[in-house]
Amino acid sequence: MSARRWAVALGLLALALPFVLEGNRFLAFVYSIVMIHLIWANGMNLLYGYVGLMPLMFAGVAGVAAYAMIYLTRSHEWSFWLAAPMASLGASLFGVLLGLPSLRLTGFYFTLCSLVIQTVITLAFVFFPTFTNGDTGINQIAPPQAPWGGALSGVWMDETLAIVAVLSVLLCGWIVSTRLGKRFMAIREDDVLAEVLGIDVVRDRIIAFFIVSMFASIGGCLFAVTIGFISPRSFDVLTSLNIWLFVAFGGRGTLIGPIIGTIVLAPIPYLLQELQGFKDVLSGVLIIVVTLLMPGGVWGELLRWRDRRRARRALAVGQT
């Protein structure tokens, strides 16, 4: 099959699975978790894989959107379908604000800066309990309303998540195929050179932060209504680091990589529920392995291996 057919088949499979898993609540739950993380991983991939910045405050932006959404639905009785886009829009503008340091800093300093920003956001979630209910968290978050009345739950909720996740993959693919996507990659490779070539690096980075924050925010709103409970710890630096790991493990800067990373890694915490400490160790080891041994990620290394083999074969053909 060609790549295109594979993509369509995968997309259809993703949309069909909620109906398939309907009878098994545990698998259906794990599936919905994977879908949400897929949205996040796509956003993270845009920034980390294509623009070349490692934003550790990613989860913080998602949290801001989730809390804002809950505030709007609870205190102003907005519908989820109105509250979530508005909250996401607000959080994305906030995300752009948080991305401003990237105009001066890159590499390690930007990552460190984003780490501090994330820490400040988490602390703010804890210390301003008017909106967040502090460490206690917010429970019994109502599911979104269904278009036919009542609450959206069970299989239709999962289907909604699957649709949004598939859309996020398509959107990501579309963005990187446009001129904007090419400019992103030019900035990633060398921002000084890109500037010289006439790319407005400042404007493009701001656009990138807006788009990426949108991914984070929508994922955050969906996370809140799916799990039904959030606390500051749902959106701390470890969450950001985990999403980063999905992208880096699967392969940054490819479309397939983050999907692989998410499918393989996202269910682990839910399967290793009672071995919380072990889960931390495992993800730590993975981070080290990825950094040292496979900087391209699983998919990236596969592509590299294929290219090398092709090159060798071409060379062999040329010689004979």
Binding site: R4, L170, S177, G181, K182, M185, G253, T254, R304
Partner: peptide, 19 residues
Amino acid sequence: MTCRTSVRDVRASAASAVL
């Protein structure tokens, strides 16, 4: 290298969505 390959993949799947 990775960068160029990925752009190709991207086009393929994005196109498939439209077709």
